[in-house]
Simulated assay, not measured.
Amino acid sequence: MTIEQLQFPSVKHLVSDEEWQLRVDLAAMYRMVAMFGWDDLIFTHITAKIPGTEHFLINPYGVMFEEVTASSLVKVNLHGEKVMESEYDIIPAGFLIHSTVHAARPDAHFVMHVHSINGVAVSAQKEGLRPLSQQSMYVLGSLGYHDYEGIALKEAERGTLARDLGSNQYLMLRNHGLLTTGRSAADAFLAMHKFESACMIQVRAQAGGGTLVAIPDWILDDAPNQIAAGRRGRGPEVIWAPMMRRVARHFPGFDE
């Protein structure tokens, strides 16, 4: 049996330059998730808000993350209704989460949600994320927790989800997974990389069986100052160009 590769007609001529760049960045994020093994087949999402509109881009249901392209992304409104022609649908449960976050947080231009194995493992632990690594130090100062309410299909969950996220950049969905927000693709991606890394380190440290050493409170209290000093005026954007080159080497064609 011959399996043909998916082909998506280009929409570059149908959208603004700004939207096209947004599509390229978002498609790259999907490929990055596949590259790091954070994807749950086709069942999680990353969304981006199109500036100046109430329209959003999300992955087409039935397409693997390493197959997502800039042209394949589905444009929808806050109700999950398509506002641009596409043969693909979207997953209602996924968009309930993302539309809630976008509506509650105008600063969340990108919303990233994964069911990574390490993230789900830590989300099932009563203590949640512990201060066991430098990576965790970045996360703990802006982390909320959302209790599991079943598959995200109930409108009533919007209120508790928005409340539990609050003004945080990171949200641990109990028994479910991880979520990050960002003003840019780089911001949301780098946050997720730190979040998942902190969870992976915690699970491996616990599996080692030895006595764990936590980061002292006085260091955690000063973490915002340390993080700001470490950046020296250079935010997450410094990693974006190198990551785009890496994605292009592993999964070329995302920018089509």
Rank of each mutant, 00 (worst) to 15 (best):
A124S: 12
Q7A: 10
G177Y: 06
K194T: 05
L171G: 01
H146I: 00
Q135K: 14
G80T: 07
N59W: 14
A205V: 01
G141M: 14
D221A: 15
I215L: 14
L22A: 10
A223D: 04
M137F: 03
L161F: 09
G233P: 07
Y170D: 01
D25S: 02
L153C: 03
T181P: 03
E19C: 05
W240A: 00
A152R: 06
R231F: 07
A103Y: 08
E67F: 07
F8S: 02
R23V: 10
C199G: 02
I46A: 12
Q21G: 02
E196C: 10
Q169M: 08
R234E: 04
M137H: 01
G37N: 05
I219K: 13
V74E: 06
V114M: 05
A28N: 04
D147A: 09
P60K: 15
G235Q: 06
W38S: 05
D164K: 13
S99V: 07
I219F: 12
G233K: 00
A188F: 07
L41F: 13
A228I: 15
A70L: 11
H13F: 11
I227F: 03
I46W: 09
K126Q: 13
G210E: 00
G144S: 07
V68W: 11
A108M: 00
H79G: 14
N225W: 06
V101E: 04
I239S: 12
H79M: 14
A124Q: 12
